[in-house]
Design a protein around this nucleic acid. Structure first.
Length: 619
RNA sequence: GCCUGCGUAGCUCAGUGGUAGAGCGCACCCUUGGUAAGGGUGAGGUCACCGGUUCAAUCCCGGUCGUAGGCUCCA
């Protein structure tokens, strides 16, 4: 069978290593890099070490997490010998391991598995690598009945493969790994869920256990607090608590916006309209439902049908729009356009409906109808680069307004697409040219473009480091062709315009969700649904409080008057929980001096103030 | 769509094979207050829906819908 491990010698080696690590101080390396730049196990590092890799390094974390996933698999195999293990990589945050077993893992199982993991870590098993012929590994895993490992091995072409052994547990793995299981100090299994073998929905569904690990208990606790914070900021929870929106059983994926949510959206859109007007955009609106023939012509019928809703009326078939472009194009075609108008920027806050699989719906982030802050820009080919730079600047303006950091991705031609190779080539290079011209770093996303053209996507990073796709810029040579769009060029000939489809916020619904979580419900004053609440101390101050409210309302400040019969403390608490930016307390003293006592949501009591001063604060 | 869990008052959640409870919220009454919870009284539930087992189902079983976390897919 597998080569017998010379236990005492290896153990001695491991002890030496641990002493060496102790000498190096608190931080112990997780792997080493040799002179020729290869990352290797500490157990095999040999004499010449270029540098050490630590947990703090990105690669170090992945090694640490990967070793923890092996620990997880070992524990599962001890508790559930019949479970087949498949793959268990490290991921962006933590690791998972997929198992094939008829026994569904429960919360209690996770606890038991964790306990077993602790025991295995205490056993401090040496994690040893062996390089063996592929055939030999195949033979071993076949004998063990580990059919998934066999499948993986059968696809490998290398004559030699590496396996890692810790105690009785053996896994096919490239490594590197920690020197021993005892090096895994703090970990937690977070969840269990289904996952298709190799991510293919035709394959069997496996059970995936997710987890995370750290070098210290403190780091783990900090991470768990971070998860709690994310839960506290969840837009679904805050949306209900702050009465911003709701989702109803009657409309899965179709959100309902309440007055306060609507106030935020309208305030946001006021800003949006103002900025778009400044930058030369005109606004249009097109119908939600249009005849089937339009969608056949645009290509949506062939390329997007499974995501569309339909309606049949008087024997005529209509499709509910999943995108705004075909409707927008009809507006363009309603008269002849001149090159002098270009770039012709037509914006539309268009409500689109897309049938999404029920399992993907998520609050406002993933819905079945949403409002795109869309625009279609018609231009001449030589204007492309400049216009794309303009749009990127507009997106940058909005993201900065909210303090979002963002990444840019360039997506290329997908499989199910239309148009010739040359057109795609030209469109894609126009986009990368614009990106390079403004010197923005970007990542290429092969095959992720729209069916009619390549695109630049903006991914926002919120305050919890999560990324959300919002803005997109899509270059399109196909749609103008399909619809035979023309314009009168300088020389009087009819030419074909190029089209840019773009959004900045993406989906208004999703953007609101992101804002809620980003601000944890404490919206900046200009965006807050209620900016000021006036609290009279006793009934006799009601009249003065009402006058203050009136004054503020006339200045277009969103103000509420609290008329409840409650103690001041209770009223303040309630307003604080509603995250209202400013609370005005008025009692005998304020009435007498014609002032208001201002309480800032974050800073607390600011003391008495003239009303005029308050106007400045609120804006 | 697939896997697993969940669905009890507006919200957060207890609970039982013999048709239900708490806290918060809400309404009313008392209290007229100075920067995060004053006191009392009361209303409010087809226990998601449909079917089955049972003398009897909110509870057990099956299905449907919704929902949570993933997978696949996307703004």
């Amino acid at each position: 069978m597998m080569g017998c491990i010379r236990m005492p010698i290896v153990y001695y080696f491991s002890l030496l290593l641990r002493r060496e690590e102790r000498i190096m101080g608190e931080k112990q390396p997780v792997a080493a890099v040799t002179e020729d730049g290869r990352m290797v196990d500490l157990n095999r590092k040999g004499e010449k070490v270029e540098k050490y890799i630590y947990f703090d390094d990105k690669e170090g974390k992945h090694i640490y997490w990967h070793s923890t996933s092996h620990l997880l698999a070992q524990a599962v195999k001890r508790l559930f010998p019949e479970a087949k293990y498949t793959i268990g990589p490290s991921i962006e945050e933590g690791f998972y391991y997929d198992f094939d077993t008829p026994h569904p893992f429960t919360e209690d199982d996770l606890k038991r598995i964790e306990k077993t993991m602790v025991n295995i870590a205490r056993e401090n098993l040496v994690i040893e690598r062996e390089d063996i012929p592929r055939e030999k590994a195949l033979e071993y895993f076949k004998e063990q009945g580990e059919s998934y490992k066999v499948e993986l091995l059968e696809e490998l072409t290398e004559p030699m493969v590496s396996i890692y052994r810790q105690g009785e547990f053996v896994d096919l793995c490239r490594g590197p790994h920690l020197p021993s299981t005892g090096r895994i100090n703090a970990f937690k299994l977070l969840s269990v869920s289904g996952a298709y073998w190799r991510g293919d929905e035709h394959n069997p569904m496996l059970q995936r256990i997710y987890g995370i690990s750290f070098e210290t208990k403190e780091q783990l606790e900090e991470y768990l607090r971070f998860l709690e914070e994310a839960k506290r900021r969840d837009h679904r929870k805050l949306g209900r608590e702050l009465d911003l929106f709701s989702l109803q059983e009657e409309g899965p994926g179709f959100p309902f916006f309440h007055p306060k949510g609507m106030t935020i959206i309208n305030t946001l859109l006021e800003k949006w309209r103002e900025e778009h007007r400044k930058r030369g955009y005109q606004e249009i609106q097109t119908p939600i439902m249009l005849d089937r023939s339009l969608w056949e012509r645009s290509g949506h019928w062939d390329h997007y049908r499974e995501n569309m809703y339909f309606s049949q009326v008087e024997e005529r078939e209509f499709a509910i729009k999943p995108m705004n472009c075909p409707g927008g194009i009809l507006v363009y075609q309603s008269r002849l356009h001149s090159y002098r108008e270009f770039p012709l920027r037509m914006a539309e806050l268009g409500l689109v409906h897309r049938h999404e699989l029920s399992g993907v719906l998520h609050g406002l982030m993933r819905v079945r109808c949403f409002t795109q802050d869309d625009a279609h820009i018609y231009l001449e080919p030589h204007q492309i680069t400049n216009e794309i730079i303009e749009v990127m600047d507009l997106a940058d303006y909005f993201y900065r307004l909210f303090g979002f950091d963002y990444d840019i991705e360039l997506s290329t031609r997908p499989e199910n697409s239309m148009g010739s190779d040359q057109i795609w080539e030209m469109a894609t290079s126009s986009l990368s040219k614009a990106l390079e011209k403004v010197n923005k770093p970007y990542k290429i996303n092969e095959g992720d473009g729209a069916f009619y053209g390549p695109k630049i996507d903006f991914h926002l990073k919120d305050s919890l480091r999560r990324r959300w796709q919002c803005g997109t810029i899509q270059l399109d040579f196909s749609m103008p062709e399909k619809f035979d769009l023309t314009y009168a060029a300088e020389d009087g000939t009819r030419q074909r315009p190029v089209m840019i489809h773009r959004t900045v916020l993406g989906s208004i619904e999703r953007f609101l969700g992101i804002l809620i979580e980003h601000y944890a419900g404490s919206f900046p004053s200009w965006l807050a649904p209620v900016q000021v609440q006036v609290l009279p101390i006793a009934d006799r101050h009601m009249e003065y409080a009402g006058a203050i409210k009136q004054l503020l309302s006339e200045k277009d400040i969103r103000t509420e008057l609290n008329q409840e019969k409650a103690t001041l403390g209770a009223k303040i608490r309630k307003a604080q929980l509603e995250k209202i930016p400013f609370i005005l307390v008025v009692g005998d003293s304020e009435v007498e001096k014609n002032m208001v006592a201002v309480r800032d949501r974050n800073k607390g009591d600011l003391g008495p103030m003239e009303i005029d001063k308050l106007f400045e604060l609120v804006k």
